Simulated scan of single mutants.
Amino acid sequence: MKKILTVMTLMFLFVSCFKKKLDSTFMVDNPTETVLELKIDDKEYKIEPMKYEKVKLDIGEHKIELVDGKKVYINVYANSKGGIINPTGAPYIFESIVYTTDDNKDTIGLTNQEILVDGVEYYGPFKVVDDFIIDRTYGDFEGGAWEFEPYEKVSETKNLGERTANISTKVNGRFEFVKLIEEEIDPTSAGDYEKNKKPYSMSAKINFDEQKYEIPNIENEDLRNKYEKLVMLDKAYFEAKTKKEQEKIDKEYKEAWKDFIHKTMELEDYSTVYTAKNIGRGVIITKVE
């Protein structure tokens, strides 16, 4: 029964990836001391130090050209909720925040871990992300919705509806995070960052997935065919440039996923698991020149 519940939970999480489109707006942030210059779809941007600019990107392919001439091509999908374009390679700290109707915050399970910000150690419900594209649509960020953006004030209360507890995520730039720690969470640590920091030279961290798939050895022919269909649709999603194409593949993939899960349950083969590379993502780097 536990295995079946686990599979059904995966099905629920998969379906949750296909929510209605919110707003495909990306923050181009410059948390440095020099002007950030780049082009997006051949439009020039000059972002002053410690400033940001928001850019709305339509569905389809876009080109980001960096000051060194490197060109990064991204595909934006119909389900995109935007995110952060991070050409400086700056670290962003995701903080998990518990909201509850009862005084039981300490009983809510959060994953605490040690992180480094400019060489200074911090411990708590934090995660550091420094990718070139930080996709707001994809990833659970400790199980909470990415609700609060960088520089946005966190609300003290939250409507939980019928739930008694929920976890949301606040994204912090590194200086914003240090201020949060030293002024609100642990005032006794004031000055620690300035005293112990070891700033490093930041550069764009461009992760390009070459779309290589390894098909596992699956004895059951029907299950193997269902697995291969998921791979085929996942590849097709990577290439899809229009809303019509993307939504068609989404629909076909959901049906194929259900068939695959039902077959694993029928065979009681819980060792065969498929993890999509592309399906559910809101933006993907497709090419780098």
Rank of each mutant, 00 (worst) to 15 (best):
G69R: 10
G69W: 11
G69K: 04
K70P: 07
K71E: 11
K71H: 07
V72S: 03
Y73D: 00
I74W: 00
N75R: 00
N75F: 01
V76T: 00
V76K: 00
Y77G: 00
Y77A: 00
Y77W: 00
Y77T: 05
Y77R: 00
A78E: 05
N79D: 03
K81H: 11
K81Q: 05
K81F: 06
K81E: 07
I85C: 01
P87D: 02
T88R: 02
T88V: 04
T88S: 09
G89E: 03
G89V: 00
A90L: 10
P91W: 01
Y92V: 02
I93H: 09
F94E: 01
F94Y: 13
E95S: 07
S96T: 11
I97E: 11
Y99F: 09
T101H: 10
T101M: 10
D102I: 03
D102C: 01
N104H: 08
K105T: 06
K105N: 06
K105R: 10
D106F: 04
T107F: 08
T107S: 08
T107A: 06
I108Y: 02
I108E: 03
G109S: 09
G109W: 05
L110E: 09
L110D: 06
T111A: 03
T111M: 03
T111W: 02
N112F: 02
Q113P: 06
I115G: 05
L116Y: 15
V117T: 10
V117W: 02
V117Y: 08
V117K: 07
D118L: 07
D118I: 03
G119A: 10
E121I: 09
E121R: 11
Y122H: 08
Y123D: 02
G124T: 09
G124S: 11
G124Y: 14
P125V: 06
F126L: 05
K127R: 14
K127H: 14
D130K: 12
D131Y: 15
F132T: 10
F132Q: 12
I133M: 08
I134M: 15
D135N: 13
R136I: 11
T137H: 12
T137M: 13
Y138C: 10
G139M: 12
D140I: 15
F141K: 15
F141N: 15
G144C: 14
A145G: 13
W146E: 06
W146L: 02
E149D: 15
E149K: 15
E149N: 14
P150N: 13
P150V: 14
P150A: 11
K153H: 14
K153L: 10
K153N: 13
K153V: 01
V154A: 14
V154D: 07
S155E: 15
S155F: 10
S155P: 07
E156V: 10
T157H: 07
K158C: 08
L160G: 08
G161Q: 02
G161E: 05
E162T: 07
E162I: 07
R163W: 04
R163L: 00
N166E: 12
I167M: 06
I167A: 01
